[in-house]
C-alpha cells in the first residue's frame, strides 16, 4: 500500500522581498496519491505549490532556500531545465483561462510547443487528453469552436485536459473549483479521483469537505508553516494540534 515518495520538500523557506512567506517546511508527497493542502487565506499554501514547478521564479524579489526533490533530484539545482520541469509538473489555476483559440488548439498548445507537428499525433493527443479530463463526450463534435464559448466548469476541465496533453507526472491544482458551481465542482472532484490512478496530485483548497473527499493525505498550513501532515482521515478525525482542530471544525479560517 505504501507507495514511494514522488516529491520530498526539505527545509523550504521563501521570502517575497523582506516578508517571509514560507518557513522551514518539510513534506513528502507520495506517488499517485492525492495530497490536499488546506489552511486559511494567506497561509502560504498557494505559494507552496507554486514552488513545486518553480512558477515563483516568474515573480520578482522572490528568494527561496531549501530543496525540493522530484524523483530524488533537486529541482532548484543550477543544471535543472525549468521548461522540462514544468512539462513534468503541470498546473491548473484557480480560474480557468482558456486561450482565445479553438478547443483543439488549446489542447494542442503544449504538445506543439514541445515540438510535435504531425497532425495525426496531435489529434490523438487531443482526444486522449479530452477523454482523460472527462470532456470528450461534450465537445468531440465541435473541436473547432472557440474555447471561450464553453461553460466555466467545461473551461476548467479544458484547462486540465490542456495540462494532461504535455504528459506530466505531477499535476498541481491551485484551488481549481473556487470559481465553479457545486455541480461543476463535483465533476472536477470525480475527475481528480480518476486522475490519481495515473498522476501524482497536489491540490490546494479552501474547502475542507473537498479535501476530505478527494485526498489521501492532507497538510494544514498556518502562517507559512506546515503545521500538521498525515493521512487525510487522521487529520480530520484525530488532529494532533489544536490549531488544526480549530480550523477543520470551523472555529477560525
Amino acid at each position: 500500500m505504501d507507495s514511494k515518495n514522488k516529491i520530498e520538500v526539505k527545509d523550504l523557506n521563501l521570502w517575497y522581498a523582506d516578508k517571509q512567506a514560507l518557513k522551514d517546511n518539510n513534506l513528502h508527497i507520495k506517488e499517485r496519491k492525492v495530497t490536499a493542502l488546506i489552511g486559511p487565506s494567506g497561509c502560504g499554501k498557494s505559494t507552496f505549490v507554486r514552488c513545486i514547478n518553480r512558477m515563483n521564479d516568474l515573480i520578482d524579489g522572490v528568494r527561496i532556500t531549501g530543496s525540493i526533490l522530484l524523483d530524488n533530484k533537486n529541482i532548484y539545482d543550477k543544471d535543472v531545465d525549468v521548461v522540462a520541469l514544468r512539462k513534468r509538473v503541470g498546473m491548473v489555476f484557480q480560474r480557468p483561462n482558456p486561450f482565445p483559440m479553438s478547443i483543439f488548439d488549446n489542447i494542442a498548445y503544449g504538445p506543439r510547443i514541445h515540438g510535435i507537428k504531425d497532425k495525426d499525433s496531435l489529434r490523438k493527443i487531443v482526444e486522449e487528453s479530452l477523454v482523460g479530463a472527462a470532456l470528450w463526450d461534450e465537445v468531440s463534435d465541435r473541436l473547432g469552436t472557440n474555447a471561450l464559448d464553453l461553460s466555466g466548469g467545461q473551461q476548467q476541465r479544458l484547462c486540465i485536459a490542456r495540462s494532461l496533453a504535455v504528459k506530466p507526472e505531477v499535476i498541481l491544482f491551485d484551488e481549481p473549483c473556487s470559481a465553479l458551481d457545486p455541480i461543476a465542482t463535483g465533476k472536477i472532484e470525480d475527475l481528480i479521483h480518476e486522475l490519481r490512478k495515473k498522476y501524482t496530485i497536489v491540490i490546494v483548497t479552501h474547502n475542507m469537505q473537498q479535501a476530505a473527499r478527494v485526498s489521501d493525505f492532507t497538510g494544514f498550513f498556518l502562517l507559512g508553516k506546515l503545521l500538521e501532515f498525515g493521512k487525510t482521515r487522521d487529520i480530520f478525525e484525530n488532529p494532533k494540534k489544536k490549531e488544526t482542530e480549530d480550523y477543520i471544525t470551523g472555529r477560525f479560517g
Partner: peptide
C-alpha cells in the same frame, strides 16, 4: 493569466 498558463505548460 494566459501568460502564466503558457509558462505553466513549459513554454
Amino acid at each position: 493569466a494566459e501568460r502564466m498558463e503558457s509558462f505553466g505548460m513549459g513554454a
